[in-house]
């Protein structure tokens, strides 16, 4: 194809998605659209899988059996969601093993929120309530993303995630209604997770260079700042309801805008954690590397056995 033809195709493609048409795996798509999607979907998948770790940290110590099974089921769902997303990326010609290796080598990114530690049980509440809440805001938007397999994975994920946030909020409710020690634990967790949760939506719109193109391609449907504001507006009353206070002195309702105004986000911290300086960056990657390395002989054995079985069956059929 000549350069002109490609430009023509790209223009047609942009019109096509602007008219709310979905793109399917074998359809023609601009190479940059494919690359952007593979990067975004695989980052999303990595985030689900790395995101298992801070919560898995509390499975053995959950305070009741009811909480233990709920947490186990939730962390398991995250493995499932990582899997759905890797599957979506594979429809674009990516190879899961390669994507995983990019994560393990540090080449690929994942949501930096999971580099924060979970020192107390209340962190299970705060993650479910705030981190999943923020994730859901993003994921609901992605249910309408232009790439079919991604959108379908998101629909499934959103359906399953609805219990996650309720699970987290219920933990916080129980703590906030508990003894002073429990309430302190809950407030401490809210203090630590509030700002990182706001950072999850990414840099402000004027510092988010790739956003415009993604919006044009209908991969993204709302801007970072829009989603962040939605999340804050929804979450503040939830905190008030259980008597916890948001750690932001500048937070106040702006009747004119119909939204909450909020304080300055510490973007230095955001970039610092992305750069690898969060409390748990090393542990997270080390844990994923360990699981992958120690699983190698298992994956190999299963393949070797499958191959032996195939040969045996072939012999049987040819003998018959």
């Amino acid at each position: 194809m000549s350069k002109e033809e490609i430009l023509n195709m790209e223009a047609r493609f942009e019109r096509y998605v602007a008219e709310e048409n979905k793109v399917e795996p074998k359809d023609w798509m601009p190479e940059k659209y494919r690359k952007t999607l593979i990067r975004q979907i695989s980052q999303h998948a990595h985030s689900e899988v790395v995101g298992m770790l801070p919560e898995a940290n509390w499975i053995s110590r959950a305070p009741s059996l009811r909480r233990k099974v709920a947490l186990l089921a939730k962390v398991q769902d995250e493995a499932g969601h990582g899997l759905y997303l890797y599957s979506a990326a594979e429809t674009l010609g990516a190879d899961r093993q390669q994507l995983v290796e990019d994560l393990l080598s540090g080449k690929a990114k994942y949501s930096s929120i999971f580099n924060y530690p979970t020192p107390t049980w209340a962190d299970m509440g705060a993650i479910g309530w705030l981190v999943d809440g923020a994730a859901i805001a993003n994921q609901v938007m992605l249910c309408r993303t232009s790439y079919g397999p991604y959108a379908r994975a998101m629909v499934k994920i959103c359906k399953e995630e609805s219990f996650h946030q309720r699970q987290g909020y219920e933990i916080m409710m129980a703590l906030a209604a508990g003894t002073p020690a429990q309430k302190k634990m809950a407030q401490d967790a809210l203090n630590r997770w509030w700002w990182p949760s706001l950072m999850m939506f990414g840099p402000t719109d004027d510092h988010s260079p790739n956003s415009a193109q993604s919006m044009k391609w209908r991969i993204k449907r709302k801007s970072n700042d829009e989603l962040r504001q939605e999340f804050i507006d929804k979450t503040v009353p939830q905190a008030e309801f259980i008597g916890l206070s948001i750690p932001d002195p500048d937070l106040k309702w702006n009747a004119e805008r119909g939204h909450y105004d909020f304080g300055e986000i510490n973007w230095d911290e955001f970039y610092n954690v992305i750069a690898g300086n969060g409390k748990c960056n090393r542990e997270r990657l080390a844990a994923r590397n360990k699981a992958h390395d120690e699983g190698k002989w298992v994956r190999e054995a299963a393949n070797a056995y499958a191959e032996k079985q195939r040969v045996r069956q072939q012999k049987q059929t040819s003998a018959a």
Binding site: G80, S87, E90, R152, A153, E160
Partner: peptide
């Protein structure tokens, strides 16, 4: 069609599908 997964053989693919896609 609900999605895909990885498995070394058909037997395990069925079991994995059960665990991954029919948890609910």
């Amino acid at each position: 069609h609900v999605g895909s997964l990885h498995a070394p053989d058909a037997e395990m693919a069925i079991k994995n599908a059960r665990d991954v896609y029919t948890r609910r």
